[in-house]
Simulated scan of single mutants.
Amino acid sequence: MNENSSQDSIVVESNPKPDTTIPMVIYALHLAGIVTGGLTSLVGVVIAYVYRGKGPDWLDEHYRYQIRTFWIGLVYFVASGLLTFILIGFVTWLLAVIWLVIRCVKGFKGLQEQRKPDNVDTWLV
């Protein structure tokens, strides 16, 4: 009888893949904020603040990107709300929604590729 056949072989991965579930949920919460008036986005930014600094650098950049997306989006949506009094706010609100969707899609893509999002510091996309 072969001794190796009776022993369990254990394979230990030297670089386990970091869990990207939380950042994906945060991106989804940001997107759901379009429908919920930003409430889910607020939950998402709190989660991002809690989890930042607890993973590899590229994952921490996602949390930073998500936090910036919340605060910049807040500025854009509040400005759009104020501009609705002169009717241009409806257009700027639509642009802010498109901006948010693009940032979240870029974030999802970066998570799938296990790299930080592009242009983390930009106010644009």
Rank of each mutant, 00 (worst) to 15 (best):
D121E: 11
V46M: 12
E61I: 04
S6G: 08
I67N: 02
I88A: 06
K17L: 14
L29G: 09
L124A: 07
V75D: 01
D60N: 13
R103D: 06
V43M: 14
W71G: 02
Q112G: 14
M24G: 15
Y63T: 09
S6C: 04
G44L: 12
D60P: 03
T92W: 04
I102T: 04
P117D: 11
Y63M: 14
R115G: 10
M24P: 10
M1I: 08
W58Y: 10
D19I: 13
L39P: 13
D8G: 13
F70K: 00
P16L: 01
I88G: 08
V11S: 07
Y51C: 00
G110S: 11
L39K: 13
K106D: 07
N2W: 01
G73W: 03
R103K: 07
V43N: 05
K109C: 11
P23C: 14
Y65W: 10
G44N: 09
Y63V: 08
K116S: 15
Y65V: 03
D57R: 08
S41F: 10
L29F: 15
Y51Q: 07
L95Q: 06
P56W: 03
V46T: 10
L94V: 12
V43D: 08
R52Y: 00
T69R: 00
E113T: 07
F70W: 00
D8H: 13
N119Y: 07
L39Y: 15
P16S: 03
L29C: 14
F70T: 00
W71S: 00
L111W: 09
Q7I: 14
V75M: 04
G73A: 01
V97D: 01
R64V: 09
G33A: 04
G73K: 00
D118I: 12
F85L: 15
R64I: 06
V45A: 02
A32E: 05
Q114T: 09
I34P: 15
G53F: 01
L95T: 08
N119C: 10
L83G: 11
L31Q: 02
F70S: 00
H62E: 05
E61Q: 12
E61R: 10
F70G: 00
V105P: 06
A96K: 00
H30S: 12
I34H: 14
L59C: 10
G33Q: 08
G107H: 07
T21K: 14
E13F: 07
Q114G: 05
D8F: 09
R52W: 02
L83N: 11
V25I: 15
L59I: 13
R68M: 10
A28E: 08
R103G: 07
I22M: 14
W123T: 02
F108P: 02
E3S: 11
E113D: 11
T69M: 03
N119W: 04
F70E: 00
G37S: 09
